[in-house]
């Protein structure tokens, strides 16, 4: 339940931020969405078993599922690189994140 609520909270924030005008907020929204995706992946492996998956355990009933962990690990790094690309997109191209300046221009 806690994981489900966390995922819901993250998606809530993500969608809200993505519907904003500024690229930076959209990017922050994507970061939250990435977190949400990761936690959903973890949930898919089950959250009732939480012991570290190391060595060759005898009793599997308490060991956390290593497969989603591996997925999430790479997902985090990929999300990081995507974040950087989006950040670069925010500063290249049109300088239209500056809503204050844009508004000023319109007034003039």
């Amino acid at each position: 339940m806690t994981v489900a609520i966390t995922a819901g909270l993250l998606v809530f924030g993500a969608v809200y931020l993505m519907m904003k005008r500024e690229m930076l907020r959209v990017i922050l929204g994507f970061i939250l969405l990435g977190h949400a995706g990761n936690i959903v992946l973890m949930a898919a492996g089950g959250t009732s078993r939480r012991d570290l998956p190391y060595g060759s355990p005898e009793d599997l009933s308490t060991i956390a599922d290593p497969l989603p962990q591996a997925f999430v690990l790479t997902a985090i790094v990929i999300a990081f690189s995507i974040t950087i690309v989006m950040l670069v997109l925010a500063v290249t191209g049109n300088d239209d994140d500056d809503t204050a300046a844009a508004a000023k221009e319109v007034q003039e």
């Binding site: 339940m1 994981v3 489900a4 609520i5 995922a7 819901g8 909270l9 993250l10 998606v11 809530f12 924030g13 993500a14 969608v15 809200y16 519907m19 949400a36 959903v40 949930a43 898919a44 089950g46 959250t47 009732s48």
Partner: peptide
């Protein structure tokens, strides 16, 4: 409203479909 709905959908989805 949209964000709230999506968040709720996520929570229900994760609760219903995992574990």
């Amino acid at each position: 409203l949209v964000a709230g709905g999506a968040g709720l959908a996520t929570t229900v989805g994760v609760w219903a479909l995992t574990g």
